[in-house]
Nucleic acid binder design. Structure first.
Length: 481
RNA sequence: GGCCCCUUCGUCUAAUCGGUUAGGACACCAGCCUUUCAAGCUGGCAACAGGGGUUCAAAUCCCCUAGGGGUCACCA
């Protein structure tokens, strides 16, 4: 194992976002590629917004995607003494100080700044309080925060593996809060301490953190640690170029799963958002991704995600999936459509496997797959409106269907090839084209205009159901005349 | 608004020491295949944000402009 160590550190304030998932994936790929260690850490220092059930969901989503971590999960909420200890040390070393300004006082200053159209910077009110002054504030019942004493001049340079060197003017960085008045550390403090103590070598995270990085560097310097390397990966944007949110449809891994996407497809798609293997390849196994991954090949540009391409990719994976596994994976989707209930026995499983194999060519998601297969599992379906006009209302339709009934009744070998031959003979006898009778039969037994090969469909459906549906359709045609 | 990042087909991207008819994929369109719908195959449409430099030569290097994004919390 090399000393490469990376981490994914989500805060449990929601489901695993697609952007977060991709960050996790890049960290994972980078660790695997370099024989490093991938650490999972839960940044749960925000008491108000963190929720325990999100932790479980986060972990479930990562597992579903197949993104495995080597260490953790660590919880910031369990490391509180670390942070307060370090904060105390900084105060003793005069690198940090207590600030007694109230939220109201700060807010008014911020408003003032906004009115003048300038950025608000904490003015350093409490920078040099005497012990006596502190004593007075404490007696007033003020709960202090702890602020880091940041340099007023010079620049702080972020050396980014993806973007190169980015420098920030220290003037624009105020004495920010590292410990809140409730005693909990802020993100910019806790995560710095964790990253340093956990010996993280590369911080690979979303671009939105780039602006925070100089603060963290200053913080790390104050603490006296060596800096890790940084890599800020581009954001994932919605089709309208805005930040991806609920109104754009699915945004979390969980939602994509529920819509019927396969984890392999989602992972493959995410990997290609902001990264490319450098060759004209789109369909990549996880092994291939690992083999080819490098931060050097990660883009700087924000990527807009395109569900159509994800869907295409998903269909490609469905086609290659092991039929047994595909049937198994599709079960919840059948259940959701009331096409299946209870645990399927072996017979049922075999049947599902056949069905799924027959219809998967035409589906982009598992949801569509279940929909395409519905008539195999229920007799309860309507005839396609257009189909009724196009086929049922044509002269002789009921008659042809009844011919098909006797064909089905009399055929000895009930499988696709034999059926095809018999139907071929029938259309010759009737002196009509196959195009006249086949779609008619399809509509009668499936209610639809399209689907798998007709004879495959019949053979899966079985003799009984086929004849019953044919008779039902013939009667229906008579009834609408 | 300050600071920071970014800018190749509609979308994801390739062209990583300047020299390509700017390549691939999705989507879209057309043809083939076919009992249907798909899939598949073949072909087509389609991009270097704009303007200045540097250079024999710029998508590639530099500057400016425009546009997009991020960030400016006792959120992470």
């Amino acid at each position: 194992m090399s000393d490469i160590r990376v981490r994914f550190a989500p805060s449990p304030t929601g489901e695993l976002h697609i952007g977060g998932a991709r960050t996790a994936l890049f960290n994972y790929l980078f660790a695997r590629k370099n024989g490093g260690t991938f650490v999972l850490r839960i940044d749960d220092t925000d008491l108000e917004r963190s929720r325990a059930d999100y932790i479980d969901k986060l972990i479930a989503s990562l597992k579903w995607l197949g993104i495995e971590w080597d260490e953790g999960p660590y919880f910031q909420s369990k490391r509180l003494p670390e942070y307060t200890g370090e904060a105390e040390r900084l105060i003793v070393e005069n690198k940090a100080y207590r600030c007694y300004c109230s939220v109201e006082e700060l807010a008014s200053g911020r408003e003032e700044a906004k009115k003048d159209n300038r950025a608000y910077l904490y003015p350093g009110t409490c920078r040099n309080l005497t012990t006596e002054q502190e004593e007075i504030f404490r007696k007033e019942g003020r709960k202090p925060v702890i602020r880091l004493r940041t340099p007023e001049e010079g620049t702080t340079k972020v050396s980014d593996e993806i973007r190169g060197e980015v420098s920030f003017d220290n003037y624009g960085i105020d004495d920010f809060i590292i410990v809140k008045s409730n005693g909990l550390p802020t993100y910019n403090f806790a995560s710095v301490i964790d990253d340093l103590q956990m010996k993280i070598s590369h911080i690979i995270r979303a671009e939105e953190h780039l602006s925070n990085t100089p603060r963290q560097i200053i913080c790390a310097q104050a603490l006296g640690y060596d800096l890790p390397k940084f890599a800020h990966v581009p954001m994932i944007l919605a089709p309208d170029r805005s930040k991806l949110s609920k109104r754009h449809g699915a945004t979390s891994v969980e939602e994509f799963r529920d819509q019927g996407f396969l984890p392999e497809a989602l992972v493959n798609y995410m990997a290609l958002l902001g990264w490319s293997p450098g060759r004209n390849e789109e369909l990549l196994t996880l092994e291939k991704m690992i083999e080819n991954f490098s931060l050097e090949r990660v883009n700087k540009t924000a990527a807009i995600y395109d569900v159509a391409k994800l869907a295409w990719m998903n269909s490609q994976y469905m086609k290659e999936y092991d039929p047994k596994l595909l049937a198994e994976t599709a079960i919840p989707f059948f259940e959701k459509k009331n096409l299946l209930s209870g645990k399927p026995d072996n017979d049922k499983k075999n049947k599902l496997e056949k069905i799924v194999t027959a219809v998967r060519e035409r589906a982009k998601t598992l949801d569509e797959l279940a929909d395409n297969a519905s008539y195999f599992l229920t007799d309860d379906f309507e005839y396609d409106e257009k189909g009724i006009n196009k086929y049922f209302k044509k002269e002789g339709a009921a008659g042809y269907i009844r011919q098909a009934v006797s064909l089905i009744d009399n055929i000895t070998e009930f499988e696709a090839t034999a059926l095809e031959e018999s139907f071929h003979r029938l259309s010759e006898e009737l002196q009509i084209s196959a195009g006249r009778i086949n779609p008619l039969v399809r509509l009668a037994i499936t209610g639809r205009m399209g689907g798998p090969g007709l004879f495959e469909t019949i053979s899966i459906l079985g003799r009984q159901k086929t004849t019953a549906r044919l008779i039902r359709a013939a009667d229906y045609i008579d009834s609408i005349k």
